[in-house]
């Protein structure tokens, strides 16, 4: 970091390689999933949907990605089917019959 650096340049210098690495990891993850036959997992579908938030120039991308992966319903659930969370909301119509 130098005194003449602009703040914008400074944040790019600090974090670009980390961001680049994470982007390639994400691409490799999607390739890895696709090397195996089968239908699309709801979590991977949610990840791909959220990716569109990165391509524009609007601010608050992190907030919009988090919202895209969130349960959009508002009423309390009647009961807990599980104690854990998976990282993406599963729309009811894609649940497999049990």
């Amino acid at each position: 970091m130098t005194a003449s650096q602009s703040p914008r340049q400074r944040v790019v210098d600090l974090a670009f390689l980390d961001a680049r690495s994470k982007l390639i990891d994400l691409a490799a993850f999607l390739d890895r999933v696709d090397r195996h036959p089968g239908s699309e997992d709801y979590r991977v579908a949610a990840l791909k949907s959220a990716l569109v938030e990165l391509s524009g120039n609007e601010p608050d991308r992190a907030r919009r990605v988090l919202e895209a992966l969130s349960d959009p319903t508002e009423e309390p659930a009647p009961r807990a089917e599980t104690q854990g969370a998976t990282g993406a909301w599963r729309p009811p119509e894609t649940c497999s019959p049990s």
Binding site: L69, E74, A85, G87
Partner: peptide
Amino acid sequence: TPHLEDKLKGTKL
């Protein structure tokens, strides 16, 4: 507040 996909709804509740 709840984890992951449950956090937004849970925080509001």
